[in-house]
Design a protein around this nucleic acid. Structure first.
Lengths: 207, 207
DNA sequence: TGACTGACAGATGTTGACTTTTGTCAGTGC
DNA sequence: GCACTGACAAAAGTCAACATCTGTCAGTCA
């Protein structure tokens, strides 16, 4: 049987599995190497440090969050509803990660606590997606705001309680959904949300 | 000189001083007793546990936050500006506590992490103050909202990043004030804030 | 030659004996 | 009697010896 070559990709998969099973506190580089049947020195051929490996695992994991969100951001149709769907999905994704992959979620929480670049990049990605929806809405006359990127940041900041991992323990409060509704109507008002005026409404795009 | 009687009040003062000096991790009941020249058993005559003592210290400390805020909430004049002054003061108070009394602030952070009743009560107090300002503004036609208490919670939730101790590390970010401005204009819009119409209670037709 | 190993040094984490702290209460003396 | 003490048990915290982990590198072997 031919041994499969040791690649960064294979290491990442093994590392994710090890993190999922043991959690960030117990997972070691030796565990990852053992899962691959190599010495731990080999892992350092592909990643300069354990931190870099952890960041790379998180990056993949975060890409699996932002990709479906990007799809929602790119949808057609009224921006206000799309914005809401986008946040509903963001919140649902975060909650399900916290519930179904607690160890990986804990890894991500450590990352946030360390204020790693990988997290900043992820947040920037998410905020640009929101900005895209807002820009779209402004063009269609569905939002009345001056600076979509600034507003995107504002919306993101205002909803921090509902998607930032540091608040994860509050997500099981019975009133959490009602609290979000309250913040949401504040936001819609603040964005000057309304139905697209007939003459401003764009024809279905077919580019 | 006659020994002063040992009262809950004197114990609280000593406990606050001990907490301020040693911080929540190092302060012991024996330290508090020593500062008062009594045995630690005596302290337990007045407080059932160290936790109860810590909570009582925090309660006093929080009262010193909510009292000046209550004064702002009770002021006359336009509600939107008052609301803004109220939040500016809240944020300034929290930041100065974090900066000038780091040990007591750490005590409070522990309290929040433990989700103690004393914190819930404090938050309820603050939210009612906001609700009071909102109610006032609704009566004067300065806000158009249905449920001032629900909106007060929404405003509080939307500004969490700027006053909740768990976010204290973000308060020194250079962009934090700009971020607050962004959220604030969202909020003002969401509350339907406007100048008081000459004749209150009449639905406005234009800006 | 170059991917990989394995032995190694220093850093970090764990363990368990020991110390301190919390909380109780019978006893003291005012 | 009451307000307080001081001795105590159980719980929690400390610390140093020991073990494991991270990161490096000279050496192996295909």
């Amino acid at each position: 049987m031919v041994e499969e070559a040791l690649t960064a990709e294979r290491i990442l998969e093994a590392a994710e599995e090890v993190l999922r099973r043991f959690g960030p506190a117990k997972a070691t580089v030796v565990d990852v190497a053992r899962a691959l049947g190599v010495s731990h020195g080999s892992v350092y051929r592909h990643f300069p440090s354990k931190t870099a490996l952890r960041d790379a695992v998180a990056e993949r994991w975060l890409a699996r969050v932002s990709k479906p969100l990007a799809e929602v951001a790119a949808e057609e149709g009224p921006a206000p509803e799309r914005l809401r769907r986008w946040f509903d999905l963001l919140i649902a994704l975060k909650r399900s990660k916290a519930r179904d992959e607690p160890e990986l979620f804990a890894t991500y929480q450590n990352l946030v606590a360390d204020a790693r670049d990988v997290v900043r990049t992820h947040v920037d990605t998410l905020v640009s997606q929101v900005a895209r929806i807002l820009t779209d809405g402004v063009e269609k006359g569905e939002f009345s705001i001056e600076d979509p990127l600034a507003s995107a940041w504002a919306v993101f900041n205002a909803t921090v309680r509902f998607h930032k991992p540091i608040h994860a323990s509050e997500w099981s409060d019975p009133g959490i959904d009602a609290a979000f509704e309250g913040v949401w109507s504040l936001i819609l008002g603040g964005l000057g949300a309304r139905e697209a005026p007939a003459k401003a409404r764009k024809k279905p795009s077919k580019k």
